[in-house]
Design a protein around this nucleic acid. Sequence first.
DNA 1: CGGTCGATTGAATCGCATCAAGATGCGTGG
DNA 2: CCACGCATCTTGATGCGATTCAATCGACCG
Lengths: 248, 248
Amino acid sequence: MLKDDTIAVPQKCDDCPIRHRAVCARCEPEELAQLEQIKYYRKFEAGQTVIWAGDRMDFVGSVVTGIASLTQTMEDGRTQMVGLLLPSDFVGRPGRDGTVYDVVATTDLVMCCFRKKPFENMMEATPHVAHRLLEMTLDELDAAREWMLVLGRKTAREKIASLLSIVARRDATLRKTGMVGRLVFDLPLTREAMADYLGLTLETVSRQISALKRDGVIELEGKRHVTVPDFARLMEEAGDDSDGGMLV
Amino acid sequence: MLKDDTIAVPQKCDDCPIRHRAVCARCEPEELAQLEQIKYYRKFEAGQTVIWAGDRMDFVGSVVTGIASLTQTMEDGRTQMVGLLLPSDFVGRPGRDGTVYDVVATTDLVMCCFRKKPFENMMEATPHVAHRLLEMTLDELDAAREWMLVLGRKTAREKIASLLSIVARRDATLRKTGMVGRLVFDLPLTREAMADYLGLTLETVSRQISALKRDGVIELEGKRHVTVPDFARLMEEAGDDSDGGMLV
DNA sequence: CGGTCGATTGAATCGCATCAAGATGCGTGG
DNA sequence: CCACGCATCTTGATGCGATTCAATCGACCG
């Protein structure tokens, strides 16, 4: 892999947008200083592959801005996205040399990477990093299991509604508008990426989105800009009334 | 919940069958002594519910013998099993009060439970428990993602073959026969439980098992006793040639 | 202006769910 | 010991939902 994706400009952790959500969230100033020593930034364009399944990984890291996806592929080409990596999410596995997933930049992407060996040493030495990582991993596990229900038991329409409600919810959280009134957001995924995530074909995704639009559950401007007039209605369409379906 | 499931007989950790695989695997003798202080055993019969989704949990623990399942349910009754808990697997989430899943004993079950608060304190104090738990959680996350591919992209036949190969592999590991020659094992799940795990109906499960039998991929004695004459063939049917599909 | 990429829509097909009957096996009680 | 009931499993017929194959459309770009 070409290394011209490395960013020269150093950024202080204090100003980092994911300072309080990422693996470093719990760190004390002196631990942060240690992390600054071993960190570097990398930048990817939408569509670029960050790591191929089976590749050796000499770093771990966090998504700073943008979105990446974890994908598995079968020999015959069928693919399933198994994770959506949003800002503050962690990539890589301490104590293991490779990934089993392709990591692909879905949008333009900036990652904060740590050299693996020093990071592992830090995990041994200081509890805060390890503790935060455990917490994050447990959350991801819950999210993955939540998604198993979507993949295993929901209809195409419910799957689409589930995805939309997740993206809507995350977007609202991010900019701290509540879950009230009309929600407006952009879909960060192509129809094909949605299909890969939902275990559908892109045609079915397209059809169901059209159907939800026709039925007034959502409104569309262009292909990606979505308005949800009534979030409760969307939740209902997703098959989980009330609070259910938390993910990410 | 009735508490008559608590077992009076104390068991020493040294003799414990899951001593070196469970959350206590890395513990030093004195840490083990600490754990002994806060542990107790509980026993469940096949079919009994260990915890209901939404219930408060005042303990965490490990499966010692038997099998349990984690299940999610939608309001309309559709269910999806999101995890199969085998001996040494961990139940519960430190730092959180309840489960979001039903935990059900699939077979007769013995669990080694730790009172939650003292266990959390121990995690703070000693690194070995927390470290091992992180490792196990990362493994579970991988397994969950592996399963997402099964649920999202595999056909009914491939799903059945995937499940069989997992059970076969685990069984062979457990009794240290290799993956060579004829594999013989018992299915620990009913057709309905398999359906819940695979995102199918029990009728489809039954049909596909019959089909695999008809095609000579497996042999059956009774409903539960399975022989796999050629494991590579089974893997092929599962859609992952060579080494793929590791789970559990 | 063709060319490409993403998206939409239609028609035909197929895999799995659904509905419905039986078969098998097992424990219980007469 | 056999009859009965119940749970589990098998098998068949039918219909629906999602895939597949294919044509078309719009937006963007060189």
